[in-house]
Simulated scan of single mutants.
Amino acid sequence: MTQTRYHLRTAKAEASRIFAAWDQAFEDEDAPVGVAEIDEAADIHEVSVYFDNDAGGATRLDAVTAALAGMTHPEIEVETIPDTDWMKQVLAELKPVRAGRFIVHGAHDRAIIRANELSIEIEAGQAFGTGHHGTTAGCLSMIDVLVRRRRPQNALDLGTGSAVLAIGIAKLARIPVLATDVDPVAVEVAQENIEKNGVSGLVKTAVALGMQSPAIRRAGPYELIVANILARPLMDLAPAVEGQLADGGDIVLSGILERQRQAVLAAYRTQGLFHRQTLRRGDWVTLHLTR
């Protein structure tokens, strides 16, 4: 069955209000609603809602949006989505990614793993953290370099997503890893991936808002901390991250655009942490810092 996507672009505050209104209005029609950041610097966010072509909810869309008091919203655009086997298409497009000694792949590519590679199996349906984004691959490459140089005794994967980095650390270093995320659903997915990759004896998960979690405090300090999130949260977390870093420990940060690099480094420099190396993949950078 074909679908129709209705979408508009606006600032974050307005996008949040429109998302909430659409989500409530069309909940009973099983019409998926989503919001995505398009351009952080320009404050452009896109809100989308998807209707099956035989659904009547789309006829109410303008009225629902117009009812938001005091808001002048941009014109709602329309796109027809063809009937496609999305999983088959995604699997075809998501080729295995090699980063250092790691290969991140789906179950359909198990046969291509080389004898000297460390396999991290993440299914394509779990989009965040499949290893295909430059930030994830950059972190894996940096982890490979650091563990070759000095094997840490424990590690924290902050904002773990699908747990791809935690799994990689556990397979490479065979050490205890704590994988945390603010999203309980992400933690459930992470736990499934950890078990599927055979490292549940090494990697533990916890729901945690930033560094404020008893689980984080109990397992720290950490000789390796990795955080692949976004630049602003990374800057805000600098004091707490420094407080959980063991003497001689390493920090790997990503989710950072090249233009944000200096601001992130400055936030950590004020905590007595120093830049050692930058890896670049496209517009994204991965940073290595120590005391």
Rank of each mutant, 00 (worst) to 15 (best):
M1G: 14
Q3A: 12
Y6L: 12
A11M: 05
E14S: 12
A15K: 05
A15Y: 02
R17S: 12
I18S: 13
E27G: 02
E29N: 05
D30I: 03
A31E: 00
A36H: 04
E37R: 13
I38M: 15
A41G: 06
D43L: 10
D43Q: 13
V49F: 13
D52L: 13
D54Q: 11
A55Q: 15
R60D: 04
L61H: 04
T65G: 07
A66G: 03
A67D: 05
H73N: 11
E77L: 12
I81H: 02
P82T: 00
D83S: 01
T84E: 02
W86A: 01
K88T: 09
A99W: 02
G100P: 07
G100Q: 10
V104D: 09
H105A: 15
G106N: 08
G106L: 07
I113N: 11
R114N: 11
N116Y: 09
E117M: 10
L118I: 12
S119I: 00
E121H: 08
A124K: 13
G131L: 05
H133D: 06
H133F: 02
G134C: 04
C139S: 14
I143T: 11
R150H: 13
R150W: 00
D157H: 13
T160G: 15
G161Q: 10
S162A: 14
I167D: 10
K171W: 02
L172H: 12
L172T: 05
V177L: 11
D181S: 03
V182S: 06
A186G: 06
A190C: 09
A190I: 01
N193I: 01
I194L: 10
E195P: 02
G198M: 01
V199L: 03
L202P: 01
A208E: 03
M211D: 00
M211C: 15
A215E: 13
P221H: 14
Y222D: 05
Y222V: 04
L230R: 09
L237M: 15
A238H: 12
L245R: 13
L245H: 08
D247N: 05
G248E: 01
A263I: 00
A267C: 08
A267T: 03
R269M: 06
Q271R: 15
Q277D: 11
Q277C: 05
R281G: 10
W284D: 04
V285T: 06
V285S: 05
H288L: 08
H288G: 04
T290W: 08
